[in-house]
Each structure stands twice: as structure tokens, then as C-alpha cells.
Design a protein around this nucleic acid. Structure first.
Ligand code: MN
Ligand code: MN
Ligand code: ZN
Ligand code: ZN
Lengths: 145, 145
DNA sequence: AGCAATTTTGTAATCATTACAATATTATTA
DNA sequence: TAATAATATTGTAATGATTACAAAATTGCT
């Protein structure tokens, strides 16, 4: 990786409940745990990764709840679904503008900074743009050696 | 739309056979027709749209052939699959760098130019980037009125 | 024409996601 | 606090796009 690669977010884990409430989400235990998982694991996890990890701490957890919760997070704008054409959806609690690179060799997904001042979609002058995603594919530095 | 919106491609329809051959694709009748459909219909069609349109002119056409052919086109780099998180994949014969905007009201997908000098992913210095896609979501000019 | 390689086709399987109704939990009211 | 309403969670079944696969058709070559 590289010094310019995007820094981690800095949401205080202790205040997840308040954070969710401020976005119109009742902070139930599964919801807090799922959100906490998202901000602690920056690897853009799939539903299965989240479910398998949380099934230990919430034995009653249903995969449907993970789906429901993530859909709600996206709806309430506290998470995004990556546009990756992957077989499984990948989620990200970092809703700020940044790009994603997927290595076709190792499957890792890297964040990278997008300087919004030099990123302007041209020709959408009368369009209301609510979301932008930049996705790259290729071979990461580690896999090129 | 807008004057800056990306111009249509200019591949000569008559030479589709040669074009496919030059990319290592044997130009069978279904393949030529599917490619011709892609360059004549710039609306980023789904498999069903292509199949339903061509079923008239190729009565024996199977949907599997459309899938197989489009997968081959993507593999041979004469088409791309849009990264859109749509329920059905959308295809584009324009493999040059350009962005896509999907209107969440009418579902239309618009092309727009990306000035590559504007657009520089930061922090992938030692990465081999083979594909870049920029996807926007929002409400198009027509739907905003 | 005869034979081998390739392509197309139809059907069945896959599998991520959603629909749905029952159950459990939480909030509100009396 | 007990009763009641609202919301959340769960398990199972359905959905639907895509793929797997093998048979049939087509094509290219001798
Ligand atoms: Mn990210
Ligand atoms: Mn396009
Ligand atoms: Zn890699
Ligand atoms: Zn629209």
C-alpha cells in the first residue's frame, strides 16, 4: 500500500447507539453489533462474513436480520453497497467519497482517496447527483511481485 | 441532456465480422447480431432486452447463447458489464473510459465524459489498474422538472 | 461427403437475496 | 405494573438471474 491510501474513519465506537439514533435507526443490539462490525472491519465485508463473525456473540442471529439491517443502513445513508459486480454484495460504513480497487488475483478491496476538487462528472449539469462510486480493477502491488 | 454528454461511438456496422475476428471472436450469426444490437442500442441493455429483441430475427435463439456471447465479449474486451448493483447486468459495447449515471426515477442510464486528466485515482502507484468505472446515481434533468 | 471442432440450445442446478408470517422484544398506555 | 400496541427478529419458502451441462446443430477442413 501507499502513504496516500485513504485513512481509516474515526467514528467513536462507544457512541454507535447515538449515531444510529441520529440517523433515525433504533439501536437494537443486532444493529449496533452489525454497525460496530462494519467500522471495525474495513475490508468491505459480505453478508456472510458479518453473519459468521457475529453468530458467536449473538447466537440467535438470523441471516435475514443481517440483510434487513444492512438494507436499512444503506437506506438511512450510514452505509453503502459497493458497485463491484461481485457474486455477493459488499458493504462499507464509510459513506464519504472514496474509490475502491479490487485485485483480481487476491480479491482484496482497497480504498483510495479521490480528491473531489479534481473529480467532476462532466455533462450532468442539470442532474441531481446523490451518489458517486469509482471502482477500479486490476492487480495490487503485493500480487505484482 | 447536454452538449457535453458523451458522443455515440462510430464503429462501422458493416465490419462487425472483421471487428470481432480481430478480437479473436468467430463471427457467428448470433454473435454478430448481438454485437450489432449493442452498438445500435446505446441504452446499456440487459440480457432480456437483447434476447427479446433478437428472438424475432433469430427464432432459434436461446437465452443461454446471449449469456455465453456477452460473457465472451467481456472476456475479449469488446464489451463491459456496468457496475450498477442492478438486479440484471447491463452491457455496453463502448469500452472507452466514460462514466454512467442512473436516474433512480426513470431508470435511464446516461453516459457522460470523463476527462482522464481530471480523474486520477490517488494512492495506487504500484497497482496495475486495468479497468476503471465511474457510476453516479440521482435524478436526471428530465425527471427533476 | 465424411469427420472433427466449435457453437448453439434446452433444461436443470445454483445461490444470493427477498417475501412472508410467526414469534419475540420493546415501547406505550392505562 | 399489567395490558396493549408497535417494532424487530427469526426461520422457512419463494424468487430470479446466472451458470452448468450434455445433447443437437452448425461450421470448417480434408
Ligand atoms: Mn471503502
Ligand atoms: Mn456507456
Ligand atoms: Zn492482490
Ligand atoms: Zn429520470
Amino acid at each position: 500500500m501507499n502513504a496516500e491510501v485513504k485513512n481509516e474513519m474515526n467514528i467513536d465506537v462507544k457512541n454507535i447507539g447515538d449515531f444510529l439514533k441520529s440517523h433515525g435507526i433504533r439501536p437494537s443490539y443486532p444493529r449496533v453489533k452489525i454497525y460496530e462490525y462494519l467500522i471495525r472491519h474495513k475490508n468491505h465485508p459480505t453478508v456472510d462474513m458479518i453473519y459468521n463473525s457475529l453468530a458467536d456473540v449473538i447466537p440467535s442471529l438470523s441471516k435475514t436480520t443481517v440483510y434487513n439491517t444492512l438494507n436499512m443502513f444503506v437506506d438511512k445513508n450510514v452505509a453503502i453497497v459497493l458497485e463491484m459486480n461481485d457474486s455477493e454484495a459488499r458493504y462499507d460504513a464509510d459513506v464519504s467519497l472514496h474509490g475502491h480497487f479490487r485485485c483480481v488475483k487476491c480479491g482484496s478491496i482497497y480504498d483510495f482517496n479521490l480528491d473531489s476538487s479534481d473529480f467532476r462528472p462532466r455533462g450532468l449539469d442539470n442532474f441531481l447527483v446523490s451518489e458517486v462510486q469509482v471502482t477500479c480493477k486490476g492487480i495490487c502491488a503485493g500480487c505484482r511481485t
